[in-house]
Amino acid sequence: MSNVLVLIELSSTGEVRSTAPELIAAAARLGTPVAVLAVKPGTGADLAKTLGGFGAAQVYVGESDQVGSALVAPQLEALASAVAALDPSAIIVANSNDSRDVAGRLAARLGAALVIDAVDLKSDGGKVVATHSVFGGAYTVESTVDGGLGIVVLRQGAVEERAAAGKGELTTVALDLGADSFAVIDSVEPAVASGRPDLRGATRVVSGGRGIGSEANFALVEQLADVLGAAVGASRAAVDAGYVPQAMQVGQTGTTVSPQLYVALGISGAIQHRAGMQTAKTIVVINKDADAPLFDIADFGVVGDVFTVVPQLIEAINARKSK
């Protein structure tokens, strides 16, 4: 089977990011998964064990002192080096800010085609066929690559299965970032850990809108999220009103989510919000306005006051848990 490279992302503190297992599982559908990553010298061996556990047959580690200070350049050079060494049939990266930057540069360098924001991936007679969900899920588009190598940018959370453990055979190379210009990272400000799942890729999301009324009232959204083990989101109206930071925005210009369960509290459902969540498997809407457009796509809608319905819901869920 041909090699399929996946770009493994590390957090600013050097841990493997949560996208690794799904990227490797997606690669296993197409060929032999090879995990590629850039690390500071001497730190690759432990990571290779982890990645082998996720299903990587090989782990290709590029070492550079500039990991953590050069913006995406070490990752780019590690992947470019792996392409030259391993002649892959496809490359898969996560749809994240860093990996998109790497994918774009590598595609331009190699004349490769970008397969953007794939939500599903298969091999059809040796060709990579990707599925895309366009305009917030209004259209389903299938695409393939013509005339050369494809670099697939895979939507986070799109692949649910996990690959069987692989050998994780380690190859280490020294990276030369060369004279190419790159941007410099001066300092990193880690996001305050909320203890909740990340919005992107979350299997459950509870979002609040303008109807929540205030920053303080948003605690109710968080309480429901916590009993459901869900990530917390918000509509643009709630963000614009200053209830929550912009990072929590779900919608066209925020995060696109496709969870198993999406609960919308006090959100009317502007077209821009729907574009970010309408592919959720189950949608629950609670709003006191019976004419809120979001009810049109709700699997279960409650016309009522979130401040009475949600506490009762939390109590009912807790009662079931304690049974």
Partner: peptide
């Protein structure tokens, strides 16, 4: 190399399911 579209389909419109008006018990029903 380039990305080429094989097919484009309109996703079937989502239909609404159950809609209840809260009469004091909607949280439990949900």
């Amino acid at each position: 190399a380039r990305s080429v579209v094989l097919s484009t389909a309109v996703r079937p419109a989502r239909t609404s399911g159950t809609k209840v008006v809260d009469e004091g018990n909607a949280g439990v029903e949900l």
